[in-house]
Computed example of a mutant assay.
Amino acid sequence: MSFQASDGGFTTVNLSHQDKKDKNQLNLSEVSKIGKTWDKHRANAEKISNYYASASEASFKNYALRVRRCSEWLEFELLPDESEDILNLKLLNAQFCRVRHCPVCQWRRSLKWKAKAYKILPQVVTDYPKYRWLFITLTVKNCHIKELRQTLDCINKAFKRLTELKAWPIKGWVKSIEVTKGRDGISAHPHLHILSMVQPSYFSHGYISQAKWVELWQQCLRVDYQPVVHISAIALDHDPKLLIPEILKYQIKVSDLVADREWFLELTRQLHKTRAIAVGGILRHYMRELEEKNQDLIGESEEMNEVDRESLLFRWGSKQKKYY
């Protein structure tokens, strides 16, 4: 068995006749490089399930059961390539729990967001070829994890005030909220990442300096300290799609999710029914589907069809910590 280059979302593998005969005895990580990623996220999902199971809330017990059953089985379709011995391996069927902080579902959701954005942004650039793009990060001071919901409410209200200012130059934006774990183990650092469009004349008329952005954000936050603000312009010859991974990455780093049980459980309470992504202005017409809650985590192109094809089926092995 040998690996070939990945192409168009497929993982390409070279299976010998013996491999085909014994294909259901293979580890996923032996068949595909993405197998190690599946193994890692599924192992972390077990940790999250155990965290939820140890909590007193009935809703968390339900989360524990759902996460434990998440993606227990994975079925991949084998699609023949031009070469007789080359097969494309693509996810065909899986049952996902859709619990917000399940590492597997968070990963799949991020992949779907990115795929949609990569598909949509070229049309935006075509429709607004002379518009410029900015990448903005707006921060606040760390808060205690038990004050996260209140802090996020303040941040969102402040951002709304910012968009209502006459000085607000942004014509379209995608906003994501990221929360990282404080070094002290009990705090959280919420901040906003914003991919934004400005008119072609922005840098000659209506330009806002770094210092002015800090002043405006402080004004809208209504705080007595200067918050940290990062602003960077995307060069004319650079593609805004390059920033999609940063904007649509995980809301919470997996390492933070599994680092501390109590911090994680409180995080779940604090983020319940909050929104991770929002779209506004011109971009809302193009990208509002990023705000949808129950998105398909497999993909239309990966759904089963009427054509019978060979497939590989893998089951999660809790003891082995891998799919086999």
Rank of each mutant, 00 (worst) to 15 (best):
I86G: 01
E77S: 14
S110R: 05
E30N: 14
S209C: 06
C105Y: 08
S32P: 03
K61P: 00
V31E: 09
I194D: 06
I177Q: 00
N93F: 08
E72F: 10
K321P: 00
N142E: 04
F3I: 09
A53R: 14
T180C: 00
G206H: 13
D260S: 03
L221S: 03
Y323F: 11
I244G: 09
I170H: 04
S54P: 03
D184V: 01
N44I: 00
S196C: 13
S201P: 05
S301P: 00
Q106S: 13
N305A: 05
L65I: 13
A115S: 14
L221P: 06
E300L: 14
R315L: 10
Q106A: 13
L297N: 02
K160H: 04
K116L: 15
R108K: 14
H191K: 10
A188F: 03
V258R: 02
V279L: 08
Y324W: 05
K112T: 09
Q210D: 04
S201F: 14
I170C: 12
W316V: 07
N294E: 15
R261P: 00
S204A: 10
P169E: 04
T137K: 06
K181R: 15
I231L: 14
S29P: 01
L283A: 09
Q4I: 07
D224Q: 13
F314P: 08
V223S: 10
M304P: 06
D7G: 10
V125G: 11
E164H: 15
G185W: 01
V125C: 14
S32R: 12
C70E: 01
G172L: 01
K20E: 13
K160C: 01
H189G: 02
E291G: 09
W133P: 05
L236R: 14
N305Q: 11
N27G: 03
F10P: 00
L134H: 02
V198D: 09
Y250N: 14
V174G: 07
E72R: 15
G317K: 08
R66S: 12
L216S: 06
V279R: 02
N24Y: 10
C70V: 05
L312G: 04
K116V: 05
K116W: 11
P129S: 05
T137F: 03
L248V: 05
Q95H: 15
M197T: 11
V13G: 04
I155N: 02
L195H: 12
Q320H: 08
T151G: 02
S209N: 05
A188N: 07
H101P: 03
N62D: 12
G299R: 11
D7W: 11
W213N: 11
K114T: 04
V279F: 06
H189V: 03
M1K: 09
K61Y: 06
S54F: 07
C143Q: 01
K114G: 06
K249C: 13
H193I: 11
K90C: 02
P122N: 04
